[in-house]
Amino acid sequence: MKILYFAWLKTKLQMTEETIPWSEECPDTDSLVRWMKTRGPTFAEVFSDLEVVRVAVNQEYITGNTALKNEDEVAFFPPVTGG
């Protein structure tokens, strides 16, 4: 799976993207977020308040827990501030 980070998530994690192999431990977005929190103090901080983190799968906003496949693109970003 391709994981993308934008705006302050990218700044804090010092990473724009990474590839994570699909595993049975993370079959959906909820479990992926839970796993992210276990990756160290910076990840735990970034994913501590999910009110300020938006999730998109294959460039579409998701509204609830969403099943994931190995070829999926998952993006994490803050509420948008364009315009």
């Binding site: 906003y61 803050p78 948008v80």
Partner: peptide, 27 residues
Amino acid sequence: LMDWLKTKAPFWKQEMNASGETNWVKE
């Protein structure tokens, strides 16, 4: 169009100030 793109289109503003600091704009 303006009201909807402001809350839906994935853009993020970063502001620069006189002391050279950069800040991500909050919604």
